[in-house]
Amino acid sequence: MSTTTQTEITVAGMTCGHCTAAVSSELSALPGVVAVAVDLHPGEDSPVTITSEAPLDPAVVADAVAEAGYSLR
């Protein structure tokens, strides 16, 4: 039986579908990530849920979001 871990983050600066796709793509590329769900709030902070096979290093998550051009709150 496999278990997954959910990591909740808040991303600032996303305004459209392209933004969510960029963040989702970077986070999905992290080892062990099986799903990324973005609840876009254009012009506001947007919650993001990352489902992974093991807990994620917060610094690695922040780097992936920064690589997409956004920042964590």
Rank of each mutant, 00 (worst) to 15 (best):
A29K: 05
V38R: 09
A35S: 12
V38A: 01
P42E: 03
G43K: 03
C16P: 08
L40I: 06
V11L: 10
I9H: 15
T10N: 11
A29I: 12
V38Q: 03
E44L: 06
A59N: 13
V65Q: 01
A64R: 02
I9Y: 15
A12S: 10
T20F: 04
G17P: 05
A59Y: 01
A21F: 04
T51W: 01
P55D: 11
D57C: 10
S25F: 02
E26M: 07
C19M: 07
S24V: 05
P55V: 12
D45C: 03
E67L: 08
T7Q: 05
E8K: 11
V36Q: 05
P58K: 13
P58L: 08
A29H: 06
P55H: 09
V11D: 05
A37C: 01
G69M: 12
L72I: 15
E26V: 12
V36Y: 01
E53T: 01
P58F: 00
D57K: 02
L27W: 00
Q6K: 14
E26S: 08
P58Y: 00
S46Y: 01
V65M: 10
Y70P: 06
S46E: 02
T49L: 06
D57M: 03
V61N: 07
S2P: 11
R73N: 13
D45Q: 05
A66P: 09
V33M: 04
V65I: 15
T15H: 14
P58N: 09
T49I: 10
S24R: 05
T7M: 13
R73W: 12
D39M: 11
S28T: 11
A54R: 01
H41T: 08
C19W: 00
G69Q: 15
V61Q: 09
T51R: 00
V34L: 00
S52F: 03
T7N: 06
M1Y: 02
A21D: 09
S25A: 08
A54P: 04
T5S: 13
T15N: 09
L40N: 05
A54Q: 08
A54K: 04
S24H: 07
D45W: 01
P55K: 12
L27C: 02
A35F: 09
S24E: 08
V60K: 03
L72E: 13
I9R: 14
G32K: 01
V36N: 10
M14A: 02
L30W: 00
S25T: 12
S46T: 13
V23C: 03
M14E: 07
A62H: 10
T4I: 10
T5C: 15
P47Y: 00
A64P: 11
A12E: 14
G43A: 04
T5E: 15
S52D: 06
A22Y: 07
T49G: 00
C19H: 07
T4D: 10
H18W: 14
M1H: 13
L27Y: 00
G69S: 10
C19N: 08
H18L: 08
A66T: 14
H41F: 01
T51P: 07
P58W: 05
V61R: 08
E8L: 12
A21E: 07
G43P: 04
P47L: 00
E53P: 02
S2C: 12
I50L: 11
C16W: 04
A21S: 06
A29N: 14
V60Q: 15
H18Y: 06
S25H: 13
S2V: 14
M14V: 10
V11T: 12
S2Q: 13
A35Y: 05
A62P: 04
M14Q: 06
S46A: 04
T10C: 06
T7D: 09
G13F: 11
E8D: 09
